[in-house]
Amino acid sequence: MSAPAFGMAFASQAAFRALMECLSRPGEIRTLEGVGAPPPMAPATAALVRSLADYESPIWLDPAFAAAPAIAEWIKFHTGAPIVAAPDKAAFALVADSLAMPTFLKFAQGSEEYPDRSTTIIVQVERFAGPALTLQGPGIETTRDFAAAPLPADFAQRLRDNREMFPRGVDLVFVTGQAIAALPRSVRIVEER
């Protein structure tokens, strides 16, 4: 069998695998090899988008991303994913301004029959530090602390409301530069500090 260049295939696989691990172990932080993209897109966000998005997965951009026309162009060129204006039509939502992130109910929540038809929100934050949430749930042996900043003041409540809707709801991916962490809809907050 001839061996075509697998470079892109390997990069996609590595980014996906990092996210798969993060989603399996909520709150755990992993680094991945980022990809260059126009600002304000972080290298890890770019790697995830290239790894997961294509013409079958519409993307919603928050106003901060939408303000940079180069972002939509980059996404279309590299993935072919349609950019949608309605957040509840998006498979992925990209949020550059984490403080201004819309409430989760604006996004697709899936239905009771098909809870998978929901939006995965990729949120860029400055750091994995700050007031911690202590989490429990699938993927966590006992408890795990998670912190990211900046986040809206009522973020913990939003996350609780999201859990209330289970199995409907959104899944969250957090990105700083080259590092990622994820909070699937299954996590529960047991303590807030």
Binding site: M8, A9, F16, S24, D54, D116, D171, S186
Partner: peptide, 23 residues
């Protein structure tokens, strides 16, 4: 790669909703 992306998206949903069968 397109097929892999489609399967990967399904895997991520499956992990987020433990035990639910993702089409």
């Amino acid at each position: 790669e397109q097929t892999k992306r489609m399967i990967r998206r399904a895997i991520l949903k499956a992990i987020a909703i433990p035990g639910y069968q993702v089409p």
